[in-house]
């Protein structure tokens, strides 16, 4: 869906990206991580031509973006940024309607779409006529996301979209994004500096360092020991083992029969939750239950330690 072929970017003599080659498949939720200055935002902005490569080719839907009209290309790609950038003199509804209006949709269709998006992002319909100054941080981020989704683009670019909100709202917005991704199958390219967020959201994780791509793949594969020290420092925060367990459901490690009286855990919970429950209840084995409550076997401390992807 999106392909970078040997792309380099130079800003006023400074190399922001160097020889990046990357292919993002249709329907992927590709997360770009890296320390600040690693070029992740630059890579994102190449896709809708906000940045022009000094070498290499960027392809979107198979076409070289350099050959496309930038305004039309941008209207076909959703874009959400940390600072949100809502238009302060326009109402929430008008903000959301920006791209459909640029595309010349009929008024009734725009109104219906705005209503639909506000429901999708669980925004109170009473907010439609308000100006952005009246919104809370979380609401503004949702409106920004709704605006990015307005013309139903098949590609969504997000630059730290949940950066400016508190952790609880952040978790909610993350879950919302995963739901939207699951339900719509859009190709999403997301920049974050939060490794936990990256591992949780990504179907395709891309790690950048000083303008070069240093690793890419599924989060589980990238955290498979032995892990390169740079990745370990970037993604681990001192708890890489636990973060990896976060990615694995209990059901994948269930075997045998639990000892009588063992505490129970749902098969869909993560192994990290299982380990936490073991520490909490001082038991080395847990009974695994299906959604319907049927016994599926046991998960033991030993099984967690020996678990491989």
């Amino acid at each position: 869906m999106i392909a970078f072929e040997g792309v380099s970017v130079v800003f006023g003599g400074v190399r922001a990206l160097e020889g990046v080659t990357l292919s993002v498949g249709r329907g992927a939720l590709c997360v770009l991580v890296g320390p600040s200055g690693s070029g992740k935002s630059t890579l994102l902005r190449l896709v809708n031509r906000l940045v022009t490569p000094s070498a290499g080719v960027v392809r979107v839907r198979g076409e070289d973006v350099a050959a496309l009209d930038p305004a039309r290309l941008r209207r076909s790609i959703g874009y959400a940024i940390q600072s949100v950038g809502l238009f302060p003199h326009r109402t929430v509804a008008q903000n959301i309607a920006t791209v459909p209006r640029l595309l010349g949709w009929p008024r009734a269709r725009i109104a219906a779409r705005v209503e639909e998006l506000m429901a999708l992002l669980r925004l109170d319909p009473a907010l439609a006529g308000r100006l952005p100054a009246a919104l809370s941080g979380g609401q503004a981020q949702r409106v920004g996301l709704a605006r990015a989704l307005a013309a139903d683009p098949d590609i969504l670019l997000m630059d730290e979209p949940f950066g400016a909100v508190d952790p609880i709202i952040r978790r909610g917005l993350r879950a919302e994004l995963q739901r939207i991704h699951r339900e719509t199958g859009k190709t999403i390219l997301l920049v974050t500096h939060d490794p936990g967020e990256a591992l949780e959201l990504a179907t395709h994780l891309v790690v950048l360092r000083e303008g070069r791509l240093v690793a890419e793949g599924a989060p589980l594969a990238l955290t498979e020991p032995p892990v390169h020290p740079f990745l370990r420092a970037l993604l681990g925060d001192g708890e890489l083992g636990l973060r990896r367990l976060d990615l694995l459901p209990v059901g994948t490690a269930a075997a045998g029969a639990p000892p009588p009286g063992a505490p129970s855990i749902a098969a869909s919970a993560s192994l990290r939750a299982a380990l936490s429950l073991m520490v909490e209840t001082r038991s080395a084995a847990l009974a695994v239950l299906s959604e319907e409550g049927a016994p599926l076997g046991a998960v033991t401390l030993q099984a967690i330690l020996e678990r491989r992807a």
């Binding site: 809708n48 906000l50 930038p70 305004a71 039309r72 290309l73 941008r74 209207r75 076909s76 874009y79 940024i81 600072s83 949100v84 950038g85 809502l86 238009f87 302060p88 920006t98 791209v99 640029l102 920004g144 605006r147 670019l157």
Partner: peptide, 22 residues
């Protein structure tokens, strides 16, 4: 706000529209 101008550009507004509308 530079973020609003940047957002307008990224949404596919032409420079002339950004000036007139933002």
């Amino acid at each position: 706000d530079p973020a609003a101008v940047e957002a307008a550009r990224a949404m596919g507004m032409t420079e002339r529209r950004i000036t007139a509308e933002i």
